[in-house]
C-alpha cells in the first residue's frame, strides 16, 4: 500500500515539476527568471462569422513560489497602443481573476511586475470563427 502511495506522490511531484518547467519554457520571452505557473482558460474564443466580436469569460490563474506584486495586462497586438491594465495583486504568491473578453482580434494577457512592469508570463487568446467572411449576402429562412 505504501508503495502505491509513494508512487502516487512521486508521480504528482514529477507532474508538478514538469508543469512548472513547461510554464517557464512557454514563456521564453519572460524577463523575470522566477518560476511562475500562469494559465488562461479558455485559450480560444469562437465566433460565428469572421470579423465579428467574440465574447467569453476568461479565467486567469497564476501561482509562484515566492511573493511578488504582479499586474495583469490585456494587449491587442494589432493595435500597438492598446495595452490595458486589468488587475493587480500586491505581495502575493497566487492570484485568480475572471475577465470579460470582447474582441474580434487575438488578445494577449501578460503578467507584469507592479513596480517596473517587467514581463513575468503571457498567454494568448485566439479568436476563430465558423464561417469565413464572404462577399455573399445570403437571405435564408427556416421552412
Amino acid at each position: 500500500m505504501y508503495s502505491s502511495v509513494s508512487k502516487g506522490i512521486s508521480l504528482l511531484v514529477y507532474s508538478l515539476y514538469i508543469g512548472f518547467i513547461s510554464a517557464v519554457k512557454a514563456d521564453d520571452n519572460t524577463t523575470v527568471s522566477t518560476k511562475v505557473a500562469f494559465s488562461v482558460q479558455p485559450q480560444q474564443c469562437v465566433t460565428l462569422r469572421q470579423g465579428r466580436d467574440c465574447f467569453a469569460t476568461i479565467t486567469v490563474h497564476w501561482q509562484k513560489l515566492t511573493e511578488q506584486s504582479l499586474c495583469l495586462y490585456q494587449i491587442n497586438t494589432k493595435q500597438t497602443a492598446s495595452q490595458k491594465q486589468l488587475i493587480c495583486w500586491p505581495k502575493s504568491n497566487k492570484g485568480q481573476a475572471s475577465v470579460a473578453f470582447e474582441s474580434s482580434d487575438n488578445l494577449t494577457y501578460q503578467l507584469r511586475t507592479l513596480q517596473d512592469k517587467q514581463l513575468v508570463a503571457e498567454a494568448e487568446i485566439v479568436v476563430s470563427w465558423v464561417h469565413k467572411n464572404t462577399t455573399v449576402r445570403r437571405r435564408w429562412r427556416l421552412f
Partner: peptide, 8 residues
Amino acid sequence: YAQYPLSQ
C-alpha cells in the same frame, strides 16, 4: 432562428 458557435 438562432445559431451559436460550438467550435470552429
